[in-house]
Design a protein around this nucleic acid. Structure first.
Length: 802
DNA sequence: CAGTGAGCGAGCTTCCGCTTGACTT
């Protein structure tokens, strides 16, 4: 048995380190945090110093038992979790949970995985830093208080199942406010004048506000002469970007490879686990001396000495904790990997970026030519750029969010002052000012990082959360045609051209939803301190003070909680329910008011008053139409569903819009209406076609049925064959040929296997619905006696509970 | 997956930050 037990957070790291330490050391992983506040309640004792009640997560119990056993057998336990707030807390939780004796427990830290660094760490152990642990507890408790006190308010005041938090709510706010800004953006146009002189062109130093001014200028240039008034050549250089952090990797993978941030992280995780790259959740741009050495060697071998320039970068990110290196290949000499295309491409990106960061600056020659116009004070400017030495550009060029790709070379002819130029033509083109760009997943991460909000491990999950809660939606927009005017001067004549361009197209951008907008409105109104973009930075400062030992963590929390909790209670008491209700107008056919508002199941339109005796119609807002922009006409359209499409083989086909979009109902079963069809206009022929296609697809799903057991089917699913019985699904054990299974085999499988959790929920929902339908049918006959039609629904709801 | 939307109001949602696999129909 090893004398020493070393505990690190990641199993891949454990494997590497064990190799460095030799046989006296056994290295195990604790897989991140081992205890946390239970999800069920607040689990913070407000009355007693905000004492947190931690619990070991169920899935960590066996792991803890293993660690505990190994710790007992070891002479010394080395807690080697990351060198940051969270890492220190993990070490402390380990010492608590494993009941480690202080005498045989040592805390070590290293921020690069090299033998030297680790041996050095072993030489210099320290004690647990309880101030740092307390800073983490403050962070944890604050987040729990904010999340678990505000979220229930949203359930009461807006809609169930919503959430609020220090990070996610600010992320939503950014998206909402950007959209707001875009909505109020006033496009301004001006005229940009470009003169073409044969082998190069130049832009006028001023722009004209109106077409008339531009025309006057062009006309006045008809007989003007053009001459070089100055030529300047300036040497310039461009430096490589720092190697990747989590956030910059997400941005570049998004721009260059089109990856969503979650995909980038999944692929990077695989590369890490296979030992191709260093750790992928980091905020550090630092490279180990080993990495710098490897890069230098690689550059010297491939490109020569001129291309090598070892350098180290310093982090400018707010609140960076730098427990790891930058993301880089583990072997700089591994220029490429093979296999899955996503991994190949991501590795390539990481390799190039890391290598380029150690390469020489690119040397560039910038040229500017000024051209004077006879009789005018305005002048033309031509700019050129020639790369004299490519340096790091040989390997890698960073891309920008705004795709003004003036990339590559633009060579200007060699001219001298006084040279006369012959104008080929001059074009004054109407150009438009642009609003700030909408956020992509990656650019939102970038913004959050700039504000110091969130951590590398949470960027991707935060994006997933706000998408899952439907606060924001990732969408494409087709863009629209915009006409513009251009004036062309050629051969002394000015000609007016009417042209058009496509503008405003969006790809995978984040748009706020109606719920997102309303929730944000509510939070900004009642919780402005937490919604402030500087809130996280402020509390981080206080966490730092706690870590320095200058502040007590529970006093900091107390100072925050007192006004915060009062605000929660006041809001619960005094604020109105948020529905975003708006009167759209009066339905000319019925004379009833038509409203739009947020209902329990999302945005909806309503015709008539809920308090009145008359009939009230409801309809879900059609996808793609927001509460803000819906018109009375559009709303009235939505009330036209459900409608009867026609009769087929004696049964009625109806078209309606449901929770999951438009559908056809025929003989009690449902068929989705694809986007290409409109439920309002779909005809009988097309409806029958869709119903037949669905039936055929259902047929294909069936592998085998048994006459003796009509409820049992062997079906073909997305993940291979499975058995369906009484609406519950069962896995077929590996190695069985589904088509050869007998009824006996199936029954045995049913007895042995647990039905999938999902199908159990579904079956439960179906049986609830059945009970409900029966009771509705029953009360429907009773209802004839009662005047009001509410009794049926009421009974239905009570039975649903049972 | 396939209704709904007020009203009584039971009992359910929820946070951020560390880490990976087991499993999906």
């Amino acid at each position: 048995m090893s004398k020493n037990l070393v505990i690190v957070e990641s199993p891949a790291k454990a494997k590497t380190i064990e190799k460095f330490l030799g046989k006296d050391y056994h290295v195990m992983s604790c897989f991140g945090h081992i205890r946390d506040l239970p999800k069920r309640h607040l689990c913070i004792d407000i009355e007693h110093g905000f004492h947190p009640e931690y619990e070991i997560q169920a899935d960590k119990k066996t792991l803890i038992a293993q660690l505990s056993k190994a710790a007992k057998e070891a002479d010394c336990v080395w807690l080697a979790s990351d060198e940051d707030r969270e890492g220190e807390a993990i070490a402390w939780h380990l010492s608590q949970v494993l009941k480690l004796e202080p005498a045989k427990t040592k805390r070590i830290v290293f921020n690069e995985i090299t033998q030297t660094a680790i041996l050095n760490a072993i030489e210099h152990p320290r004690d647990l830093d309880y101030d740092l642990v307390d800073a983490q507890q403050a962070r944890r408790v604050l987040d729990r208080l904010v999340g678990y006190e505000i979220s229930p308010l949203l359930w009461r005041k807006v809609r169930p199942n919503l959430s609020a938090g220090r990070v996610q709510s600010v992320a939503v706010r950014l998206v909402v406010e950007r959209e707001e800004e875009i909505k109020h953006f006033k496009e301004k146009s001006s005229y940009k004048v470009v003169a073409s002189f044969g082998n190069f062109s130049a832009e006028l130093d001023t722009r004209f506000q109106t077409k008339e001014e531009a025309r006057k200028f062009l006309e006045s240039c008809a007989s003007a002469s053009f001459s070089v008034s100055g030529m300047e050549i300036k040497p310039s250089k461009r430096s490589p970007a720092a190697p990747f952090t989590t956030s910059t990797l997400q941005q570049e993978a998004s721009r260059k490879l089109g990856f969503p941030v979650s995909k980038t992280m999944v692929v990077a995780q695989q590369l890490y686990e296979e030992g191709f790259i260093t750790y992928m959740r980091t905020d550090s741009v630092n490279l180990s001396s080993l990495a710098i050495g490897m890069a230098k060697e690689q550059i010297l071998d491939t490109y020569g000495e001129k291309y090598s320039r070892p350098r180290n970068f310093s982090t400018k990110t707010k609140g960076a904790q730098e427990a790891h290196e930058a993301i880089r290949p583990t072997q700089m000499s591994r220029t490429a990997i093979s296999g899955d295309p996503s991994r190949v491409k991501l590795y390539d990106l990481i390799w190039k970026r890391a290598l380029a960061s150690q390469m020489a600056d690119a040397e560039i020659e910038k040229t500017q030519i000024n051209i004077q116009i006879s009789g005018h004070t305005e002048y033309f400017i031509a700019r050129g750029e020639v790369i004299l030495f490519d340096g790091f550009l040989k390997v890698y060029a960073e891309s920008k969010d705004d795709e003004e790709d003036d990339k590559g070379e633009k060579r200007l002819p060699v001219l001298k002052q006084g040279d006369m130029l012959k104008l080929e033509h001059m074009l004054a083109r109407e150009v438009f000012s642009q609003h700030s760009p909408r956020y992509s997943e990656a650019s939102l991460v970038k913004k959050l990082e700039e504000l110091g909000i969130g951590r590398p491990s949470t960027y991707a999950p935060t994006i997933s959360t706000i998408l899952k809660r439907e606060y924001v939606a990732k969408e494409d927009r087709p863009g629209h045609i915009r006409p513009y005017t251009a004036l062309k001067l050629k051969d002394g004549q000015v000609e007016e051209l009417h042209l058009q361009e496509n503008t405003g197209a969006e790809k995978a951008k984040l748009f706020p939803t109606d719920v997102g907008i309303l929730v944000n409105q509510f939070l900004v109104k009642y919780f402005s301190p937490i919604m402030d973009y500087g809130f996280t930075a402020d509390v981080e400062k206080q966490f730092d003070e706690i870590a320095q030992g200058d502040m007590k963590w529970n006093e900091m929390i107390a100072a925050f909680y007192q006004p915060f909790h009062k605000q929660v209670e006041d809001t619960a008491q005094n604020s109105e329910k948020v529905s975003g209700e708006r009167l759209l107008g009066v339905d000319p056919a019925t004379g009833k008011n038509v409203y739009v508002r947020l209902g329990r199941f999302g945005p909806m339109v309503q015709r008539g008053e809920t308090q009145s005796e008359g009939k009230v119609d409801f309809a879900s807002l059609k996808k793609g139409i927001s509460m803000e922009e819906v018109s009375l006409e559009q709303a009235l359209e939505m009330f036209k569903l459900p409608r009867t499409v026609g009769i087929y083989e004696g049964e009625e086909i109806t078209a309606a819009a449901g929770r999951f979009g438009p559908y056809l109902k025929y003989k009690g079963s449902f068929v989705s209406i694809p986007k290409t069809d409109d439920p309002l206009v779909i005809d009988l022929d097309r409806a029958v076609e869709l119903i037949k296609a669905k039936a055929e697809a259902e047929q294909k799903k069936v592998i085998k049925t048994f006459d003796e057991e009509p409820e049992l089917h062997i079906l073909n699913g997305r993940y291979g064959p499975y058995i369906s019985f009484e609406n519950k699904n069962y896995k077929i054990p590996k190695g069985c040929d589904a088509s050869l299974l007998s009824l006996e085999d199936c029954r045995r499988i049913l007895a042995e296997e647990q039905p999938s959790a999902r199908s159990v929920r579904k079956a439960a929902a179906l049986s609830r619905k059945k009970v409900k339908d029966e009771s509705t049918a029953k009360t429907a006959s009773e209802k004839k006696k009662t005047a009001k039609d509410t009794a049926g629904k009421k009974t239905a709801k009570t039975t649903k509970k049972a």
